[in-house]
């Protein structure tokens, strides 16, 4: 019950009721956006953002920069560096 799940806002379905459609691992469901709308100039600008969904409510916009920073600390621990380089090389 206390575990939220990350999903991506794909549409605004009811601007008055602050409802949107969130894609959670391929499943789309209606999610209340009341708690995340505050920091955005318009509801539409929420589309494309990742949010943490909890019992039908988007509770937090996942901060991409912070997510990267946390991963960077883990990466700095070493070892994976080589793997990352290999991955990048593999992509180019």
């Amino acid at each position: 019950m206390c575990l939220g799940i990350p999903g991506k806002i794909v549409a605004i379905s009811d601007a008055v009721q602050l409802l949107g459609i969130v894609d959670v691992g391929g499943i789309q469901r209606s999610v209340d956006l009341s708690c995340v709308a505050q920091d955005f100039a318009s509801l539409d600008s929420l589309i494309g953002h990742w949010v943490l969904v909890h019992v039908g409510f988007a509770m937090s916009v996942i901060d991409e920069a912070e997510a990267q920073a946390t991963l960077a600390v883990l990466t700095e621990l070493g070892q994976v560096q080589e793997e990352l380089i290999a991955m990048q090389e593999g992509q180019s």
């Binding site: 019950m1 206390c2 939220g4 209340d32 009341s34 708690c35 909890h54 019992v55 039908g56 409510f57 509770m59």
Partner: peptide
């Protein structure tokens, strides 16, 4: 706890 409290309040 406070995690689910806002959803109930709303």
């Amino acid at each position: 706890f406070e995690t689910t409290m806002p959803s109930t309040a709303l």
